[in-house]
Design a protein around this nucleic acid. Structure first.
Length: 495
DNA sequence: CCCCCTTTGAAGATG
DNA sequence: CATCTTCAAAGGGGG
């Protein structure tokens, strides 16, 4: 068995994310938005993490967690038993079953049929789960609510344009099958969010300056770093940097071996052609108390120096001099806005007061390390885009989610392992960092907006309680979500 | 310009 | 302790 470990309880990895824990095949977050998905069968597990056996808590709050084990003798899920688990079956629903479900659903009405037809092209898992729900304990009104909820969700989440896009994209059988199997584990192409500080591509080929997504290759052709080129090809050729299109985050690639992450000895560094005069080792002190900032003064480099996007956190923090090339952001560190920082020339246009205020406001943000699925998405997104001619991330992510569940245990384990190393590296790079640091930076506005609104009916739970509805079988979300069953009641009672 | 959508997993917050 | 919430990536779309 394997699965992500949790530092929270110091417990073991749970076997696999159980799709059954998400009625209607939607995530908890989706469930909050999709009325029908709130319906839970009495015996069904809550959407939260499954109970896990306790393990010794690591000394460090963010200390290493137990890795997913390919060993099938692990507790709970031995051998292939998981494959027979109901929750797994849901994830592996195939086209045939989906067709049946769709046919069943199509009898509900033309309008719903249309919405279902559109949404089901991607939401097979939802449809399948809905069908399962009918057969399950939640049949009846709950199942109907769920179906209607899906309809509403589909209409809301996939307006015509997107639906058409999905239809086009999913015409390729591969896109709809959810059984993408030729996932090639490419460790180097995965994470490497925390590159060797030398910007130490083995190859001194110039890299494009930080650019926006307009300059990205169509359909997200993987942006391989020099390191990737080095490791993946005996005759590496210049390649564009691995750039986070949206945030300009440069994520050069590294060896998945953790030792490769950190053990950049002076000898190994010497082999790397420095495009900037990065300080000599130690480059990434491993001790949390090493105070690496003291070790790494801002490197000096001529303007236009290739590989300008990576820096040690300290370099980022200390690079406030306009025009100074030392402003090389670490991949995990981005301006709070999530946008690329102004280029030096732009910065010079700002007044000193503005710059000062901006500097104070724009303390760099250390991003969360990517989890296994995020790493998987990062690697496979380009493939899906190419195969399905889709561009919209929401649709692509749905496909990726299904493919993720279709992955074998071994394949998933690879990503869990990479994610574990990612966290470990992140923890060592930023010993004092906590995910709490980024809390509220995205949703603050929304939350504030909601708090300002006195008419906000609150959570579905509160909504149910307010109307005396059964928390288990009834759904009555906030009125803004327009519950097909209860919204008249909501609208009637709420101001 | 900013936020939404959509996915899973990790982890902080809350009751 | 169980549950809820937020944020990681991505990029088109919409207000």
């Amino acid at each position: 068995m394997f699965g992500p470990a949790s530092s929270r309880s110091g417990s073991a990895w749970r076997p696999r994310p159980a799709p059954a824990a998400r009625p209607g095949g939607v995530s908890p977050r989706s469930a909050r938005r999709a009325p029908g998905s709130e319906v839970r069968t009495p015996g069904s597990p809550p959407p939260g993490p499954a109970p896990r056996p306790a393990l010794p808590r690591p000394a460090h709050p963010r200390a290493e967690r137990i890795m997913p084990q390919l060993d099938s003798s692990g507790g709970g899920a031995g051998g292939g038993d998981d494959l027979g688990a109901p929750d797994e079956l849901l994830a592996f629903q195939d086209e045939g079953e989906e067709q049946d479900d769709k046919s069943r659903d199509s009898a509900a009405g033309p309008e719903r049929d249309l919405a279902e037809l559109k949404s089901s092209l991607v939401n097979e898992s939802e449809v399948a789960a809905g069908g399962a729900g009918v057969a399950g304990a939640g049949a009846g009104a709950g199942g109907e609510a769920e179906a209607l909820g899906r309809q509403h969700t589909s209409q809301r989440l996939f307006p015509d344009k997107l639906a058409e896009s999905l239809e086009d994209g999913l015409k390729a059988p591969e896109c709809a099958s959810g059984m993408y199997k030729d996932t090639v584990y490419s460790a180097f192409n995965l994470l490497m969010h925390y590159p060797p500080p030398s910007g130490a591509g083995q190859h001194p080929q110039p890299q494009p300056p930080l650019h926006n997504k307009a300059s990205q290759p169509a359909h997200g052709v993987p942006q391989l770093s020099p390191l990737y080129e080095h490791f993946s090809s005996p005759h590496p050729t210049p390649a564009p940097a691995d750039i986070s299109q949206k945030q300009g985050v440069h994520r050069p690639l590294q060896t998945p071996d953790l030792s490769g992450f950190y053990s950049l000895t002076s000898g190994s560094m010497g082999q790397l052609p420095h495009t900037v005069s990065w300080p000599s080792p130690p480059l990434y002190p491993l001790s949390p108390s090493c105070g690496y900032r003291q070790h790494f003064p801002a490197p000096t480099a001529a303007p236009g120096t290739p590989y300008p996007r990576f820096t040690h956190p300290s370099l980022m923090l200390g690079s406030g001099v306009p025009g100074h090339p030392a402003a090389i952001p670490h991949p995990a560190i981005v301006p709070p806005s999530g946008k690329q920082e102004l280029q030096p020339y732009d910065r010079t246009l700002k007044t000193q007061a503005e710059s000062k205020a901006e500097k104070e406001a724009k303390k760099p943000t250390i991003k969360k390390p990517l989890n296994a699925f995020m790493l998987y998405m990062k690697e496979m997104r380009a493939k899906v885009i190419a195969e399905c001619t889709l561009k919209e991330s929401a649709a692509i992510n749905q496909i990726l989610g299904r493919r993720w569940h279709a992955l074998s245990r071994e394949e998933q384990a690879k990503y869990y392992e990479l994610a574990r190393k990612e966290r470990q590296l992140h923890m060592q790079l930023y010993p004092g960092w906590s995910a709490r640091d980024n809390y509220g930076k995205k949703k603050r506005r929304s939350r504030e907006k909601h708090q300002e609104s006195n008419t906000d009916p609150g959570s579905p739970k509160k909504c149910r309680a307010r109307f005396g509805l059964n928390q288990q079988t009834d759904w009555c979300g906030p009125c803004r979500w327009v519950c097909p069953h209860h919204y008249p009641l909501c609208f009637k009672l709420l101001p």
